[in-house]
Design a protein around this nucleic acid. Structure first.
Lengths: 134, 134
DNA sequence: TATCAAAATAAGAATGATTATCAAATAGAA
DNA sequence: TTCTATTTGATAATCATTCTTATTTTGATA
């Protein structure tokens, strides 16, 4: 009626995911949202992430230590998963090949292509070294 | 003492995984093993799969509907995941690019490269059609 | 073969991520 | 406002995976 119309939780969740480059899990997203949506429920986060995914407006890009990680876009690009700290980052420098043309040859319909590299990120590599950078 | 020496469960698990091309889950592997190892425990399957993975002699190639799927080798190759039936198949026809050389440029250590296509397999495509093949 | 320590296992409890349930709150149209 | 459909919060339920512990098996050695 008078005050600024409150955004739906749904909008806040999508905005928060899109604002992040960390490919958060549902739980992490829930924690990030607490600041602006203190009364949000974890179930709502899960529920809406599932909805967005079914609508094709977000994607899940990896499962790290049994936890699903999300990306606010569906633009195809390569990801790097650090097996040390669990971080997931975009590798925009690496071109993702397009295999959609193979569908007919393979007898199937290809909807998505996901290329994921994994290993140790720069930080985790550094922490492994005997002598840290002097 | 006298009878043929019984194989360890561990060996049976690895052999069963290697004999399969279906990229089974731990649970599916457990069910497949029941014939020859009726008294095997599901925990043993999980335990040994984790061991094999840490030894680098098997790999987990996908998570389908929240369930981890395994491959008896670590030879890099492309996989196709059907979002209809959950089947995971090798795509040996599709060459998997090698990005290990990017490590230095990216400042990280790349251990594995995983390329996964997903969509609908031939069977699930067929079942979608209004009129099945006459 | 008997004995012993280390490794492997079965059974089931515990954990933790995700999903389902349902009553209450909210949005949007009339 | 009033009505109805949608969305949500709280929490219970589910399900994959891991942990625990007592027991069994292995392999070495005497």
């Amino acid at each position: 009626m008078e005050s600024a119309k409150q955004f739906r939780k749904r909008n806040a969740i999508l905005a928060c995911l899109r604002a992040s480059k960390a490919h958060p899990s549902a739980e992490t997203l829930y924690q990030m949202l607490q600041k602006e949506q203190p009364d949000i429920s974890l179930a709502t986060v899960y529920r809406n992430l599932a909805l967005f995914k079914s609508q094709g407006i977000i994607s899940s890009v990896a499962t790290v230590n049994g936890v699903e990680r999300f990306d606010g876009t569906t633009e195809p690009h390569v990801h790097f998963v650090c097996t040390g700290c669990g971080a997931v980052q975009d590798l925009l420098q690496v071109e993702q090949p397009d295999y959609s043309g193979f569908a007919q040859r393979l007898g199937c319909r290809i909807d998505t292509t996901q290329l994921t590299l994994s290993g140790l990120c720069r930080d985790c590599l550094g922490n492994t070294r005997k002598s840290p950078k002097s």
